[in-house]
Design a protein around this nucleic acid. Structure first.
Length: 902
RNA sequence: GGGCGUUUGGCUCAGGGGUAGAGCACUUCCUUCACACGGAAGGGGUCGCUGGUUCAAAUCCAGCAACGCCCACCA
């Protein structure tokens, strides 16, 4: 028992021990149960480390899963990682470069081996970190998006969609990263505002219009003029109407290009003339399509100007821009330059400026997928928490455009489309082939592209559970319970999971989408590597323990869209200095430990038995406990962690430790009450530990190890105590089983006793009377209820207030040399002898009178308002009347007291 | 441009039509046999501004302001 409990709780020692117990006990995997709780972890990048977002995400999920497990549901928290195509390939590229190698020289096969090596080397990190947090994920069933069976699922999805006509190939403008040399999706592109210029260039007209022999176009990207194939004006711009149908002679390349009108053009911007470069701008592409313009690609895959443009060929975008501007200036065609701020797209991986680039890509047609995915949410089959995210999702979904899924990478799921060079046959296949099924030729090759990483992660809820090979694996476990994730991947991931699940399984992938707030740095800025203001969750665990970190993070989880994390980071070294709130959470962990330790020190002679209220102090404690059981259960199941966690802390610290344990100390010394007091205490402690376990699993488990069986462990049929192997698999306190304890009168009675104690304590503080000096206390109750409630607990009051006696009655006289404190329910007289400071008491009473008069005046004004009496709810009116009566009683008492101190 | 969020004591934030809350910080007292990572008692706010709805507004509505986020995007 308590001998096993060291005086101070050291998470660094205890947490690994507890972890061993859980892992060796095999509690993490799925067990049969009543009801299901399946949760998939949002797959972190295989190369990643846990960041604060993950730490919060995983704390929430673990709380959900642990509570469900204790409630007897069949739980599985599926662990897995994502191959993260671009991210991994970029890192492996970098590593190879540092070794003087490059992937083009080594070839695809060797490069993929290098990627696998990298994966194996770094893949374990995140798993260990998740383990260290205490997350009860199923470590024996780990998934990876590049596993063979997962790859088969990805391939099936591709082939099915290909054959169902949802996947097509086309030449489109895509966001091209010239550094990663791949297309990336719109969602992976990031806009950044940049200070640039608006160059006004003169394009000579082939024949003058209204006496003008040139027009001026305005552009932020003069280098793209080499690929211009038209000039557009706004149809709403009457001044430009005369130019429509004319042509200009494009300088440098001497191409005659038409002027036309198109709604894309804003007459008010720039010069009103827009140069149109269909191959290098999405809007221009659309205009080019509409007006049948040629699409001329002037850049290669590295954004170098291609051959055929003389001196400009071979230049980078920046060089070319400079050279083109210089050329225009030289030839007197540079009209003028304006400063101009505009947003520029950057690659989310390498931050290179993206080039809108015309290339052959694979797309998913989303028209057929959208409808069911929208319906899943509008019908309520998928609920967003907080609900406000529902609208973002629907808006995004409604504006969804076809999804570019091909990436010009090597690391990833290769597109399973095969081409015959002999007869032109093409098909998507589940099995590789090198023979053409149509002509029998041997010149068959596979598409070189790989799939967007999100294409594989969209299958996460079902491909991790055996789809399509073992559909029975999903039985009862899909849809999954909840998806807990960050709001920035609602579109990227959540939406696509819903689309694919609806398509292949005709059901939603999860019932609840829980969006947690973004964790910002202390000053409200984003945590980022470049700023060095990020916090490593492992630093928090090192310093405060996993429980403290989890508890603090959960207390931050409200419906807010972001929260500031109070960590101090050294500005120079980026070293983590501390987090006051986490420190406070650790203090709470210590508090739980010490309170438990105290109880276990007093368990001599204990035997398990039924908790019984032998006073209102017990009854009130059990009542508060019952309410807490309900609040915690509902809090977890409705994902209201912030509020629930704060209330639970206040409950345990204030109600259990500060009042109940203190009240009970005296009773542990009484032979005839000791056993029942022990039983009651253990019952309250055991229930509390179970409630706190999903939030702070380590310390609660560790304490539970040292605890004797409580009434919760007693089998009602046999009367035998049967303790579970571990708290994490012990039974949850079910709210219905606790409602019998709710006792409002006892709670009110206890408040009266508490008020007496507080009166004595504040008087003591005011008169600087040593806590060691016993005081005589007389309580004149204002009614039978108060008299009996306080009378019943006067022993407690005496011990808590260190009073020699607490005398309670209806008609007691104020003793000589006493201070009087008036309240609505009783007057308390505290005998301080000749210490009484008449002037000070007068001041205090006058202050109290003023306060009471002010409130009474307000209450009477309200009661005098006919509208209030007529329209307010009857119970509100009644409450107000009672309050007014109480205030009057208090005022009478105060006024009477004032006389004594005249 | 569209959408969203925030604005409450020195700090960080809860709450939410009917007498302003917590933690930290602050003041005073207490090392009494679970805990000083503790206990007790205190001080401190006209809940961003302006209107409106209501018997009653910090709370609901509208407008405004400041700050922040997301989406779209101007060649």
């Amino acid at each position: 028992m308590y001998e096993e409990m060291p005086k101070t709780y050291d998470p660094a020692v205890a947490e690994p021990e507890v972890l061993d117990k859980w892992l060796s006990g095999n509690y993490y995997g799925r067990r049969p149960g009543k009801g299901d709780c399946t949760v998939v972890i949002p797959p972190p990048n295989v190369t990643g480390k846990l960041h604060m977002g993950h730490a919060l995400d995983d704390s929430i999920q673990d709380a959900i899963v642990r509570e469900a497990r204790m409630r007897g549901r069949s739980t599985q928290w599926i662990l897995g990682t994502d191959h993260a195509g671009i991210a991994t390939q970029t890192k492996v590229d970098k590593k190879l470069k540092s070794e003087g190698k490059n992937r083009l020289e080594m070839g695809r096969e060797t490069f993929l081996d290098a990627c696998w090596d990298w994966t194996h080397e770094y893949g374990g990190t995140i798993k260990e970190q998740i383990k260290r947090m205490g997350c009860s994920v199923d470590f024996d069933n780990e998934r990876f998006t590049m596993d063979d069976d997962y790859a088969e699922a990805v391939r099936k999805v591709f082939c099915d969609w290909y054959h169902d006509g949802l996947i097509y190939r086309g030449k489109r403008i895509v966001n091209w990263c010239p550094n990663c040399t791949t297309a990336i999706s719109d969602d992976e592109a990031e806009y950044e505002n940049e200070h640039g210029h608006l160059w006004h260039l003169r394009y000579p007209l082939t024949e003058p219009v209204n006496g003008q022999d040139y027009i001026v176009v305005a552009t932020t990207r003069p280098e793209t003029m080499l690929g211009d194939t038209g000039v557009a004006v706004s149809p709403k711009d009457p001044e430009k109407a005369a130019f429509v149908g004319k042509t200009v002679m494009l300088p440098i390349v001497n191409r005659e290009i038409p002027i036309f009108s198109d709604f894309h053009v804003d007459a008010g911007f720039g010069s009103g003339f827009v140069k149109v470069t269909p191959a290098h701008d999405p809007n221009d592409y659309a205009m080019g399509e509409a007006h049948g313009l040629e699409k001329i690609n002037i850049f290669d895959e590295h954004a170098i100007v291609v051959d055929g443009y003389g001196e400009f060929s071979g230049m980078t975008r920046d060089e070319c821009r400079e050279a083109v501007v210089a050329w225009f200036e030289e030839h007197g065609l540079l009209d003028h330059i304006e400063d101009h701020e505009h947003s520029v797209m950057h690659c989310y991986r390498c931050d290179t400026t993206l080039e809108p680039w015309l290339s052959e890509q694979w797309f998913v047609a989303v028209d057929k997928l959208k409808g069911p995915a929208i319906e899943a949410v509008t019908s309520g089959r998928v609920r967003f928490n907080a609900e406000r995210w529902k609208q973002s999702y629907l808006t995004w979904m409604e504006n969804l455009k076809d999804w570019c899924i091909s990436r010009q990478l090597w690391w990833g799921h290769r597109i399973p489309v095969f081409y015959c060079e002999d007869c032109g046959w093409e098909d998507a296949l589940m099995e590789d082939t090198d023979v053409c099924p149509k002509c029998g030729g041997h010149h068959v090759h596979q598409d070189e592209n790989v799939l967007d990483t999100w294409f594989s992660s969209q299958l996460w809820t079902f491909a991790t559970q055996g789809w399509p090979q073992r559909p029975e694996g999903l039985e009862g476990h899909h849809p999954t319970t909840a998806l807990v994730t960050a709001r920035d991947i609602i579109a990227l991931w959540v939406a696509r999971m819903i689309m694919s699940s609806e398509y292949f399984l005709h059901e939603e992938p999860f019932h609840d989408v829980v969006i947690y707030p973004t964790i910002l740095a202390k000053d409200g800025s984003r945590m980022s590597k470049s700023k060095g203001n990020g916090v490593d969750p492992m630093d928090l665990i090192d310093k405060y323990g996993a429980d403290a970190m989890r508890f603090n993070l959960l207390s931050l989880f409200t419906a807010n869209q972001d929260v500031k994390f109070d960590a101090d980071i050294d500005k120079r070294t980026h070293e983590f200095k501390g987090s006051p709130r986490t420190e406070q959470a650790r203090a709470f962990v210590t508090k739980i430990w010490n309170a438990s330790r105290f109880l276990l020190m007093n368990m001599e002679g204990y035997e398990p038995g039924e908790p019984k209220a032998i006073s209102d102090a017990d009854a009130r404690m059990f009542s508060r406990l019952a309410k807490q059981v309900k609040a915690v259960t509902e809090g977890i199941e409705t994902y209201n962690f912030g509020e629930m966690v704060r209330n639970l802390q206040a409950f345990f610290w204030n109600e259990v430790c500060d009042w109940y344990v203190e009240v009970t100390k005296a009773r542990l010394k009484l032979d005839d009450e000791r056993l029942q007091a022990q039983r009651n205490l253990i019952f309250v402690l055991d229930t509390s530990l179970r409630l706190m376990h999903p939030l702070m699993p380590f310390v609660t488990e560790k304490i539970w190890d040292a605890m004797p069986a409580s009434w919760l462990d007693v089998d009602p049929a046999t009367g035998e105590a049967v303790r579970a192997e571990a708290l994490m698999v012990a039974a949850w306190p079910e709210p219905e089983a606790y409602t019998q304890w709710i006792d409002e009168p006892a709670e009110r009675a206890f408040e009266l006793m508490r008020a007496v104690v507080t009166d004595v304590r504040s008087t003591r503080a005011r008169y600087r009377i040593s806590p060691k000096e016993q005081l005589r206390v007389v309580v004149r109750a204002h009614g039978d209820d108060a008299a009996s409630a306080i009378g019943q607990m006067s022993g407690f009051a005496a011990s808590l207030a260190n009073a020699s006696s607490v005398e309670v009655g209806l008609d007691l006289e104020k003793p000589e040399g006493s201070i009087a404190l008036a309240g609505p329910d009783f007057d308390a007289y505290i005998v301080v002898g000749d210490l009484v400071d008449f002037a000070a008491e007068r001041t205090r009473i006058e202050k109290a009178i003023k306060k009471a008069e002010k409130e009474l005046a307000g209450a009477e004004r309200t009661l005098a308002n006919p509208g209030f009496v007529a329209k307010a709810a009857p119970e509100v009116v009644e409450a107000k009347r009672e309050r007014a009566a109480d205030l009057k009683a208090e005022l009478d008492a105060l006024t009477a007291q004032l006389v004594d101190f005249a």
